[in-house]
Computed example of a mutant assay.
Amino acid sequence: MIPNERLRIAIPSKGRLREAALSTLERAGLQFRVSGRRLFSVCTDTGTRIIFTNTADVPVLVAEGVVDLGITGSDQVIEKGAEVIEHRRLGFGKCRLSVAVHKDAPYRTAQDLKGRVVGAKFVRLAREYFERQGVTGVRVIEIQGAVEVMVLLGMVDAIVEIVETGNSLVENDLVEIDRVLEAEAVLIGTSEPRDPAFCDQLIRRIDGVLAAARYTLLEFNCPASKIDEAVAITPGFSSPTIAHLQDESWLSVKVLVEKAKTQGVIDSLQQIGCIAILESELRHARL
């Protein structure tokens, strides 16, 4: 135990979600050091313990109240049937759970797999998928290793597996025939955290991290005669910040813009005569 322990957070000990989870917590203000194979880190300034564990175990630890918050894949939460609160979708670790078969196999739909053997790490999700599709007689077996190779070895006729880029499927002569679900990293929690007030505060901090990931700050000089057009192009989160310059024919503008729209917005601002357009990266934004 640590003195005055206020919160426990579980995150993956390895894999695609670990680094992004650590970065999110760090940008939310938690100060910690990750050391070798140590399975936890302590944030002494906030009384928080970060526990590194298997991704699939995070929903269980949260559901049982062993930890207060957890970061894991939304697919893992569904697979475990964990009764947890999904506080936020975090926007990273996006992937899909797909049904895949060998490229030369005669299977092209879920119905073609009736009476066949399917390998999966996510057994519950696989079975529920075939039930929804009305496909009977499918034998789903659990495989926790390299699922893709099992098709080549003839152990299974198809797999239900996580797909990010699809490169692994191509390398193993597999093709997707359907998608089971879309998934991403989520922040989950228990209904009774150790310190509810600090738990809520940390979630608000994480909201600030997520907002910073979504928006960028644009600063530019705009002809005073064009300010209404500029505001129409960049209305901002609530309203842009507009300041007068020494030359009264120009105005200085600061505004939040969604990152996905930034280049198009800059192009439009230039077209109406705006100059000195600067983009600044945000680390945190409370909106």
Rank of each mutant, 00 (worst) to 15 (best):
L218S: 02
P193Y: 02
R27Y: 02
G81M: 08
L17I: 02
T46M: 10
E19R: 07
L152A: 15
V58W: 11
L181R: 09
T190D: 01
R194G: 10
V180A: 14
R132M: 12
L125R: 07
I203A: 05
T53P: 01
V255S: 09
A110T: 13
V209L: 01
D267E: 04
D195N: 05
I2L: 13
V84S: 00
V101A: 11
S23M: 02
F52E: 06
A232C: 03
L152T: 07
K14W: 09
D195M: 01
V84F: 01
V140K: 04
L25F: 07
I2N: 11
T48N: 11
L287M: 06
R33I: 10
L218A: 04
S23V: 05
R88K: 02
L153Y: 10
F122H: 15
M150F: 08
M150D: 06
R96P: 08
I9N: 06
V175M: 07
V231D: 02
L22Q: 07
V34N: 14
E161A: 12
L287S: 03
S168V: 02
R204Y: 08
I266Y: 10
M155S: 15
K254V: 01
G29R: 04
Q31M: 07
V135R: 15
D157A: 11
I9K: 03
L245M: 15
V265A: 10
R38F: 13
A120N: 14
E184S: 03
P196A: 04
V67F: 11
V253R: 06
E219M: 15
C95G: 07
R37C: 02
T48Y: 08
S238K: 09
M1V: 15
E176T: 14
V140I: 15
D68T: 08
I71C: 05
L69D: 05
T241S: 13
A185M: 03
S249Q: 14
T109G: 14
E5T: 09
R214Q: 00
E164T: 12
R194Y: 08
K254G: 01
E128K: 14
E79I: 12
L90I: 03
L61G: 01
S280F: 13
I159P: 14
L282N: 02
P193I: 01
S249E: 15
Q271W: 07
F237L: 09
T234L: 07
G145P: 05
Q31W: 04
V156K: 05
E5H: 07
V140H: 05
C222L: 11
A21E: 05
Q270Y: 08
P3G: 08
E5S: 08
E171I: 03
Q76D: 09
A260G: 06
L202F: 07
S98Y: 09
G166Y: 05
G208A: 07
E26M: 07
L287N: 04
S168W: 00
V265I: 13
V84W: 00
P193H: 03
I277L: 12
R127W: 10
L282Y: 04
I275S: 14
R116F: 12
V62E: 06
R18E: 09
G145K: 09
V163E: 14
R205F: 08
D178Q: 13
I2E: 13
R88D: 00
L25W: 08
Q246A: 14
